[in-house]
Design a protein around this nucleic acid. Structure first.
Lengths: 197, 197
DNA sequence: CGCCCACGTTGACACTGTCAAGAGTTGGTC
DNA sequence: GACCAACTCTTGACAGTGTCAACGTGGGCG
């Protein structure tokens, strides 16, 4: 095995477990056993149990950032909806990562400089988008409020979809894409740049 | 001690702990010890560790529902903002409950009929509000999309505030009330009934 | 060669949730 | 009063957990 392999194996096993069962039942010893290695071996790659969550979180933010940037590049006409789709899509496709990224009890972002960096980067994507959408004459407080509203809408939709209650209540609104577009439309924030050019 | 007291003591200790440290580190034995009782005593009031979370969740939904209904009654002119304020306010004022209510890995709503009932009730409050705001001519799919958007916005704002990243990034936008109003304004959903009557 | 260091091992510790069995009190019924 | 049953709580045990400590082991380098 190459030197990185055990680390990657543990990480992958942990992400898969979290995607299915949530982060709380994750057992350090269990992932070690799943990797076919003694219960202490992972300690040479992660300082703590928390260290695993930090690594997953960093990996998650990197995937997250590239997903958002890719979506914005792919749909410049309606960046708000594009971002919403990318946010929710990432959460659903990478539950294992997403479930960890916003859980300060599992890993405190400020504890790890690398994690802080990638988390800041993803926030910059959002603010840049809002600044672009609202135009140069927008006040700082408007930009803040709009960014907060977009973030909250995307984050709420993602967590409600992942944690389940939404589908049970609302019922299926067709495809994921259709749901997101309908919500974006009802929120009043979609297509702010050009209307049906 | 009256027969209910240990149950209430354990519940209160658990909620307080969760509000401060999150639900995952909560220890059955620890709350028993905090209540000054043997490690097995709580088993006569809760079937499981999960049973504690179910009880907290039920209590939470009851508080939640009355908070939302009270807010709607108190501000009939702008029910959307009122609901948003009540939702976020409840999350911040009852973190211990809120952190448990939307965590299916801790307690599955469908496992407990009583829990299912109070959770359904809180969802009905939201749908009734949306139906009222959009008027009788609104289609079912519009109602669904609007309810989803409102729920997502409120839920996202609440979880982002509780889990911390928002304040670090956005900075303080004055009071909680001002933040919520600004966000509601930036989403297109506020004051849909009458504009500055 | 000798040495170090990264990697992995075994062993131990306190702590956890939970099963099992027993003790004490309470209330009701003969 | 005597008995029984239910309820509440206790003690004891078990496997499983995260983590500290000490112990191999093998490859690269002086």
């Amino acid at each position: 095995m190459s030197p990185q392999t055990l680390r990657e194996t543990v990480l992958k096993a942990a992400v898969d477990y979290i995607a299915d069962h949530g982060p709380d039942g994750l057992s350090f010893r269990q992932v070690a056993q799943a990797a076919g290695v003694s219960h202490q071996a992972p300690y040479h790659h992660f300082t703590d149990r928390k260290g695993i969550f930090e690594a997953i979180s960093i990996e998650g933010y990197e995937l997250f950032n590239s997903a958002m940037l890719g979506a914005l590049a792919g749909n410049p006409d309606d960046p708000t909806t594009a971002l919403l789709e990318a946010y929710v899509g990432f959460a659903l496709d990478h539950r294992g990562h997403f479930r960890v990224m916003f859980r300060p009890d599992l890993c405190m972002i400020s504890d790890n400089p690398e994690l802080q960096r990638v988390a800041d980067a993803s926030f910059d994507v959002l603010v840049d988008l809002v600044r672009d959408v609202l135009g140069p004459k927008a006040s700082i407080s408007d930009i803040r409020a709009r960014a907060t509203a977009m973030w909250a809408l995307a984050h709420g939709l993602a967590t409600l979809l992942i944690d389940g209650p939404l589908e049970n209540k609302i019922g299926r609104i067709g495809s994921r894409r259709a749901l997101i577009r309908a919500v974006a439309g009802q929120s009043g924030m979609a297509t702010p740049k050009k209307r049906k050019r």
